[in-house]
Design a protein around this nucleic acid. Structure first.
Lengths: 214, 214
DNA sequence: AAAATAATGTCAATGAATTGACACAATAAA
DNA sequence: TTTATTGTGTCAATTCATTGACATTATTTT
């Protein structure tokens, strides 16, 4: 498995392939050509082949791709064959929603701890995992082999908490706080800036309306 | 305001500019050069100037950009000077989290209705907005000038609900369901596929670990 | 078993996005 | 008022991403 330097554009498309292949597999489809898949997903067949080839040939000329095999391979590329230990920091609605989401567990992302600064929430459990005070984060991260921290706290505290996490060995942060975290090289941050997404929708909405009313 | 065809790559960056400019304004900064902003935001100055110029010149040679003015202009481009009426469909944790998020209201996105198929939730209020049964969606959308529907329901029902929405005049859908909606031309869809985002983080985490353990 | 068909992997061509360079206009300094 | 500096707007160059084309190899049909 000699992965070179794959562009993030390609990586961003992998989960979508994974989803479609999973659905095909569930429907009992055994093989599929890039052409068929391209019609289903509304992308070019060329892009599909190009994308898969970044990771070596998964298909066979004259046959196409084996759905089950390809599904599993992409899962492996995405690291879904391994278990990842998660903690959620910020147990408000959003934190609880993410903690409760069963599908993540199905993919190997296991909720190990929840933290909040609000004492009223302490002890309250999300899927059996009790909410702890923020002070516990440091030791918990160190002692429980936590891979990913989910940040669902206001931006005012996010930067500080991120620093604590990094100092205690966190390697990946899924950041829902509306702020850019400044972490050292080698720490992975994936931002989900919901309001950015909503503003983009707003732009496109306005844009289209404007275009079609003149 | 002669907007041509701006690429989505540019649009995606606008909310981040907006955020930084808002913070600068709050700090009392009056002017800023593309060079200074580029250092702050860690992008190239050239990109900043190029981006802004898509919408006409906001700056002045020898001076730079007026923070307040630029902030407001970008807000207008993003449609934040107008009010948008929202409904949230799916009043689980995620739907409630989004419905409760005050910052959206600050930007003109006003929650007008919430819907869920679970009768236990009916009548329960999120910021004064009661949860209604799904059957009410059609008339509510038609009678309340709803611009944006937020879909926080399972993928199994999302496609059908989207169709109902479109049939009743919705122009924009903020889609959190893990499925691709197939809507007619002119209906804006902004997808937030959380599990895709988590998988991308997982890939980058694995990738980096692999690279640094051999 | 041979011929026809299907479909990948890959290279080349095109297109899009980003960066660099600089003329020119406004500001600030002399 | 004149000169020096700053910094935009914009064009050109480069880099990156996508699409198209096709040789090659496997499968299927005759």
């Amino acid at each position: 498995m000699e992965e070179k330097d794959i562009s993030q554009a390609v990586i961003s498309r992998l989960p979508r392939y994974f989803r479609y292949l999973g659905e095909l597999r569930d429907e009992g489809v055994e093989r599929i050509s890039s052409q068929e898949l391209s019609e289903l997903m509304k992308v070019t067949a060329s892009q599909i082949r190009q994308d898969f080839n970044n990771f070596g040939g998964f298909g066979q000329q004259g046959y196409g791709y084996n759905v089950e095999f390809l599904y599993k391979e992409i899962g492996k590329i995405l690291g879904l064959d391994k278990t990842h230990n998660l903690i959620v920091i910020g147990a408000g609605n959003l934190g609880q929603a993410l903690g409760n989401y069963m599908n993540f567990e199905k993919r190997g992302f296991i909720l190990r701890g929840m933290f909040d600064k609000n004492p009223d929430l302490h002890g309250k459990a999300v899927r059996g995992i009790p909410v702890q005070p923020m002070e516990n984060i440091e030791s918990f991260v160190r002692e429980n082999n936590i891979d990913i921290a989910v940040l669902t706290i206001p931006k005012t505290s996010a930067v500080d908490v991120a620093e604590v996490l990094v100092n205690n060995g966190i390697k990946a942060i899924w950041n829902f706080a509306h702020v850019d975290l400044n972490v050292p090289e080698g720490i992975q941050v994936e931002n989900v800036h919901l309001s950015d997404s909503l503003m983009k929708l707003s732009y496109n909405l306005e844009r289209y309306n404007k275009e079609n009313t003149k």
